[in-house]
Design a protein around this nucleic acid. Structure first.
Lengths: 235, 235
DNA sequence: ACCTGAACACCGTTCAAGT
DNA sequence: ACCTGAACACCGTTCAAGT
């Protein structure tokens, strides 16, 4: 069974478990990832997951400590697929890490919810954060500039920018209501209508916008680094 | 009863509802805020809240549509306490808004969880976002630069920076385990140990760090604005 | 108009028992 | 060693009934 995982890819394929074959942690996590890919993180309850594995809910607790451990394990299976950067300079290294995380996010949209919900870093998560920090520190950044840089990058190192209130306001089905909202909140409406964030094809593109904001931040870090920035002598 | 609210402050004081006095929306929201202040947002269930109001759970549904509406209403009561900025220039205006939101966050720590959990903006939330956008747009920013600025500010306009994995890793009670982690993840450990983010007293200070990161971003926006930045001609 | 009672369809997790 | 059964202490929300 483990061979099936290795050859088919742990993350993207539900395990072909024979009826009655014993569960193990990888099988539980792979099924949880498959369930989340299909129906979102909200659908991944201990009970729903156990049903998909044709097992009673309590059977899962032999393989994961609790729900927090389950979510942590799911995050780990994705983080382990992040490729190591091949560049030497901190800028392309960090850039490629962030964009790789974003690629993984696109394949597993529940990663956003999972990272938001998780409270404790696993060893795999710590290793990734250490690698990002190392890209700065081992390539000329002071520890405190690295500290700032990681704070300012925020969730971008996990492949997304957390947006407050991502959904539409209530009652947006009615076109008249939308027009009324646009009149009442003209600046927000202008930003929502803004197509200035362009990809080469000219249309508004979230990926392009993400990369653009990332490059803006990397440029700011470059300037601070070149200015020999330390926190005791502010910008 | 409404007078009690006005004179005592809607947000910070639980309503002194006489037994049998009829509920209204403000009373429900005020009690929800009081409960969240005491025990966190997780403790604000429809059932727990109704118990505190000496009422059956279903009674709440006459005053709030559902749990989402309840959380939205709680957020609104806090957002309405944000003072309007008194400056003319966009920079001190935005800066004072962000720091005012942070003050409110300190009084109501559950705001973080509430904003993270909320999916649809209320009218009050839209009005606040419109005001922040107006500070940029009406003071010389293009719409698309404003768009970027708000993306990069992220949750700071709600008074905090969302930190991924805010808790300690598992098994941090044991000092030996901590030492082993520090050895295994030296860059993360260096940042955690970093006291370079200083307040004037010399100690590590989250407020000071927050303001510093904010000023870093505002400086970046200033440079972009002065460079006549538009997205068609990238930095 | 406002609140109640009973029910529905869920949760995560415990304990002791089975095989 | 691994899974099961029954139970505990919760959720949000519905419907129809009470006052």
């Amino acid at each position: 069974m483990y061979d099936v995982h290795l050859t088919r890819g742990v993350v993207d394929v539900a395990p072909q478990r024979g009826r009655g074959a014993p569960l193990d942690r990888d099988a539980v996590l792979a099924e949880a990832v498959a369930l989340a890919d299909e129906r979102g993180l909200g659908a991944v309850s201990m009970r729903a997951l156990s049903a998909r594995l044709s097992v009673v809910p309590m059977a899962l607790y032999k393989h994961v400590a609790d729900r927090e451990d389950l979510i942590g394990g799911m995050i780990d299976t994705v983080v382990r697929t992040y490729p190591a950067p091949s560049d030497d300079h901190w800028r392309p290294r960090v850039r490629s890490r962030v964009l790789a995380a974003r690629d993984a996010q696109a394949r597993h949209p529940w990663m956003r919810d999972a990272v938001d919900e998780a409270r404790r870093p696993t060893l795999t998560v710590l290793a990734y954060m250490d690698a990002v920090a190392a890209d700065f520190i081992e390539h000329g950044f002071t520890v405190d500039l690295t500290h700032y840089a990681m704070h300012v990058l925020g969730h971008r190192i996990w492949g997304y920018t957390t947006e407050a209130f991502p959904g539409p306001p209530a009652g947006v089905a009615d076109p008249e209501a939308v027009a009324a909202l646009a009149e009442r909140f003209p600046h927000v409406a202008a930003i929502a209508a803004d197509t200035a964030i362009r990809n080469p094809a000219g249309a508004c593109d979230e990926q392009y916008e993400f990369e653009f904001a990332l490059d803006l931040l990397l440029d700011a870090f470059t300037r601070l680094q070149q200015a020999g920035w330390v926190s005791a002598s502010p910008v």
